[in-house]
Computed example of a mutant assay.
Amino acid sequence: MNDIRYSKMTQYELNQEIASLKEKARKAEQLGMVSEFAVLERKAVMAKAYLLNPDDFKSGEIYQIEGDPGSYFKVDYLNGVFAWGFRMNGDGKEEALPISMLTELK
């Protein structure tokens, strides 16, 4: 088990970690371990966030939520690799998403 924080990893280490998590997730999915699969997928999304530059994401902008077609997220502010804001079609509650879950609108 790797105890190094994602924020302390190099780009190479993050890419290795993501590949490892995706492989473990694939195996968990094949074995029907749904919750294990979900945890591993979420960890990969978190690791991927550390490969991105938070400066590329702007407050006030609306982004599509990756893996959730038709769902949009309006960013109020950023804190590290998390974008804080709310879902456009949601209940208006503030939440934080890793920036790796946000895609620019085309």
Rank of each mutant, 00 (worst) to 15 (best):
G32M: 07
M101I: 02
S59Y: 03
K8M: 13
M88V: 07
I62L: 05
G85V: 08
K8L: 08
I65S: 13
M33K: 15
M88P: 00
M33C: 07
E61C: 13
Y77A: 07
I4F: 09
A25Q: 12
A25S: 15
K8W: 13
A28G: 10
A49E: 05
K93V: 10
P98V: 11
P69T: 03
N89A: 14
Y63I: 10
D76E: 14
E61F: 14
G90F: 03
I62F: 03
M9V: 04
M1L: 06
Q30A: 03
I4N: 06
M101H: 10
E17F: 00
S20T: 04
S71P: 00
F57R: 09
M88R: 08
E29R: 13
K93E: 15
E29A: 15
N2A: 05
A49F: 04
R5H: 03
R26E: 15
W84H: 15
V81H: 09
R5K: 11
Q64W: 10
E23A: 14
G92E: 09
E95T: 09
P98E: 11
Q11A: 10
E61P: 02
K48C: 06
V75I: 11
Y6C: 08
Y6D: 12
D76T: 05
L102C: 03
D68S: 15
K27G: 11
V39Q: 04
K74L: 04
K58H: 11
G70I: 05
I62S: 04
S71H: 09
D76A: 12
N2H: 06
L105N: 06
E104Q: 11
N53K: 14
R42K: 08
K74N: 07
S35R: 11
K48I: 03
F37N: 10
V39M: 13
A83C: 13
E29M: 09
Q30E: 13
F86D: 07
A47Q: 01
K22Y: 01
D68M: 14
L78F: 06
D68I: 10
D55N: 08
A49Q: 03
Q16M: 09
F73G: 02
A19R: 02
F86E: 11
P98L: 01
A25H: 10
I62K: 13
L51N: 03
V75E: 12
S71W: 08
P54V: 01
L105R: 12
R26A: 15
T103I: 12
E17Y: 05
Y6G: 03
A83P: 05
Q16A: 12
W84C: 12
M101F: 07
K27D: 15
E13T: 00
K74Q: 11
F37Q: 11
K24R: 15
K24N: 07
L51D: 06
R5E: 10
F86Q: 07
S7G: 04
P54I: 09
K48Q: 15
A47F: 00
M88G: 05
D76F: 06
D3F: 12
E41P: 00
A38P: 01
E13F: 02
Y63H: 06
A44G: 08
K48H: 08
S35I: 13
A25G: 12
N15Q: 09
F57H: 05
G80H: 04
M1T: 01
G67C: 11
I99R: 01
K43G: 02
A19T: 02
S20M: 02
S7E: 14
L52V: 02
G70L: 04
G80F: 03
F37A: 05
G85C: 06
F73L: 04
G80R: 10
V39A: 06
M9T: 00
L21W: 00
E17S: 01
